[in-house]
Design a protein around this nucleic acid. Sequence first.
RNA 1: GUGGAUGUAGCUCAACAGGUUAGAGCACUGGGUUGUGGCCCCAGAGGUUGGCGGUUCGAGUCCGCUCAUCCACCCCA
Length: 422
Amino acid sequence: MQPIQSVKGMNDILPEEIALWRFAEEKAREIFQRFGYSEIRTPIVEKTELFTRGIGEATDIVEKEMYTFQDKKGRSLTLRPEATASIIRAYIQHQMHVKSHQKKFYLIGPMFRHERPQKGRYRQFHQINVEVFGIDEPMLDAEVMFLACLFLREIGLKEVSLEINSLGCPNCRISFREILQEYLLQYQESLCPDCNRRVYKNPLRCFDCKAPQCKEILSNAPLILDFICDSCNRHFQEVQNFLRELNVEFIINGRMVRGLDYYVKTAFEIVTEHLGAQNAVGGGGRYDGLMKDLGGPDLPGIGFALGMERIILLLKDSAKLQQDNNQMIYCVLLGDRARAEGFKLAQKLRSEGFIVDLSYEDRSAKSQMRTANKMGARMAIIIGDDELSQGVVQLRDMHRSSQWVVEIEELVPELRSILNES
RNA sequence: GUGGAUGUAGCUCAACAGGUUAGAGCACUGGGUUGUGGCCCCAGAGGUUGGCGGUUCGAGUCCGCUCAUCCACCCCA
């Protein structure tokens, strides 16, 4: 009989890794809270239409990467491939623009995209998302990017860089689109088949192409930065000024375009060279028309997403933090009476707040001690018939290799003082 | 969706050109100390060589199919 495996591209997060995940998540919560953000959690399943309208019909995500299925009444539902659309949906649905002053949100959770898995890319993956609605000030754009960088720095990721660009507003983009299209059509025969398609559908995306001949053609292509309108340009300049004031290092990448249709003006990515083919740790940008497109008030928005798995991958080869069992107490029980008494004692210690494990099997003292050692326990409590008859236990400090006798009544204060001082 | 690589013990890998009973290190269990960890020594357990089929006197090894994983394309977090 074949054992059942997890679904392709959907991975278990095992206990050894959990410490890293919690570390990153808790750090995110703490920092976002400090900046005035509130956590929000939305369902993992939404009506398919939310994403087709929100992300854009012509994007790869919508065209071929969504987990879409029918429910029992024939409605089309989809496992969320990203979070922004859901958060906006919730914001509109609960009329938060009139009912509350809350406009800054973060969400941590799983997303789903049906792609072929590879390093740093999975079918179920986790994102940390940040979204702000109702403010279109460049100051906020800068602060949002600062926040993303601050978080990565505080969890210890150094070798990442921030790339920014402006994609203009819908007005300047339409005219630039034509200019770019005209340029690209001159070289139509040399462009790869994909780019030949993109020239008509979404010429901006040709900038993402990695085919050598396309790269060369694009290297001389007009850049949107040279064509954005005055107001977009002013916005972009101010964003840069605020970034400098916040001491955020960045580079302008005029060839960066993002894969989701809704971005306008500020777009950014945080990239690294240590993730194989996946170089983005996170990315985001402004999406001023999106809330209105989804049937809500005409409020601007900006946000970003960070890829948890990618962060964890980077964290793993840089800072190696080890599981901390420094506070654990392991009970070594010798003989039937000791096993019965020790079992009760373990529960008592747990109720006092100690982290306690014990040997459930009747094994030799040596093997129980070995187990205590392997688990990294700080203290061992050794209980045998001799000790029981005298109302005491042996207490062993596994780090210092010292051992002494303690009255059972004195055990709790004794343990407390040892564990507190270390 | 396309291409490439790899599947042998829990892990990392061996096994000459097809040839007995598929090995080693680490990990695991027990012992060396009638009740004491890490180091050391001894012993033990653990495999339908991913699966199915084919060639052959004989297949871990060769062939076909299939499944899985990884990497890359594509795209993105």
